[in-house]
Write a protein that binds this DNA or RNA. Sequence first.
DNA 1: GCCGTTTTCGGCCCGACTGTTTTCAGTCG
Length: 578
Amino acid sequence: MIGMNNAQIADAFDLIADLLEIQGANPFRVRAYRRGARVVREWHESLARVAADDPARLTAIEGIGRDLADKIQALVSTGSVPLLEELRAQIPPSVLDLMRIPGLGPKKAAVLQRELGINTLDELRAACQAHRLRDLKGFGAKTETAIAAGIDLAQSANERIYWSAADQYAQELVEHLRSVPGIEKIALAGSYRRGRDTVGDLDILTVSSDATAAMDQLAQFDGVEVVARGGTKMTIRLPSGLQVDLRVVPAESFGAALQYFTGSKEHNIVLRGLAKSRGLKINEYGVFEVTPEGEKYVAGRTEEDVYGTLGLPLFPPEIRESRFEFALAGAGPLPRLVELTDLRGDLHMHTTATDGRGTLAEMVAAARARGFAYIAITDHSKRVSMANGLDEARLRAQWAEIDRLNATLTDLRVLKGVEVDILERGGLDLADDCLREADWVVASVHYGQNQSREQITARILGALENPNVSAIAHPTGRLINRRAPYEVDLEAVFKAAAAHGKCLELNANPARLDLDDLAAAAAKAHGIPIVISSDAHSVDGFNVLRYGILQARRAGLTAGDVLNTRAWPEVQRLLGRG
DNA sequence: GCCGTTTTCGGCCCGACTGTTTTCAGTCG
């Protein structure tokens, strides 16, 4: 079996980039490694396999040249690469911990390592206490104090929070700023606006006649610490550690600033490169024509204007990742991405029969209130004993209740479903003759998540081969910041799902969002219908669907790619059960 | 280190803020 996976290759490239940066290497060389790391991490197939089968294809990947291709070969065959070993010998990788301190970057880390022999955060703490930093060139008393204060922060820093949590802060902050005199516009930008599954900090953009008033007001938000403050830009930290940037711009720059601060960084680099090749310059103040006489403002009031100057469409923020959006724009008008209101039903939820907190009747009422045309009740099967999972008899009793309920309903169809456990030894937790009577069956792995890649993949492929299974729920089992995805050969899962005409779930729970955006895009490429599901455990549980929609949009999914935008009879036809 | 309708060298996105400087480097986004 092949040694290194894409994530490990990417980590090696990132480590090389970090260490080169500390060495003061050519920044573009550093960027090349980072870019290489990114494309490798996001690549849809195993590069170890590509390297073994058809190595010439490696250099065909954008951002991978001859040198990085050779390094991929070395990494997958030997587990390392000479350059990395040399760098490690010169700089202990623990020095990278120093750069997690806000305000301490590669240059200062290099000075600390070279001049004072500091290799760890503990050694740095001791050096600060002995006031050994302040006499270094480029350092001073203030820097020393700031670094000392930042050491404790270094541990918790870089922790990205769920998008749903960031949304709470975002709404509170906007509410807090709304009343400031002179504020004309407030917008949220950054990865929050792009709908990333996690958010590292919040970017708030305002148009205001009085920047001072806006900043004063933000400084008064409960418990904030002001990190930096200038004439147009301010950075604060909330008690939770979340950093918030406020930027005040004139109205004629609002679109340019919104575009700029929404990013992503990679998207902006491409955009600016395109502008430059056309004699234009883009910054947060606008698009400028560059002539020998100087610069002339040509656009900036709206994002649409900014993109328009380059003949580009207004990209939905969710796809501004420099993954596929520029190619998409080149191929014609942008497709309309799926929206929350496109969903006609929800096909994964629980009731008090197992671990849900709403009764069947309550869940049905909540679904009707939302205007759904159909829902599937998918309680756990018996293996999930902690959740009081259903055996065949209890499940059939629930289905009988659903039959009776359906007889009274005209506007909503309740589907007889189940979330059947994929057992550790393979196979499903309920008998086929029972599953055959269901309208909708989601199969999922809950136990044995530490099994080998081969075992877990085989279990899921087994479920996909079962004619009674409709979809695989949360296909990688990840819990963001809490549990890594289990080892599974997603390529094999995609191929099998496509071959057997099965669906894959994008679980909208903000801690899951699994499939993630990249995997959902890959599944779409295989022609697999994606089901966006709430996995609701209460009547409020449907509210998470919007998080799933954001990830689906990031994957470039249209309503046509999402199974539960369709009417139920059409879903049945697609499943071959019509 | 990558890349090419400026094609194998010479580019590679751009600006705000801070602290240590006295004209700017480093960091950050």
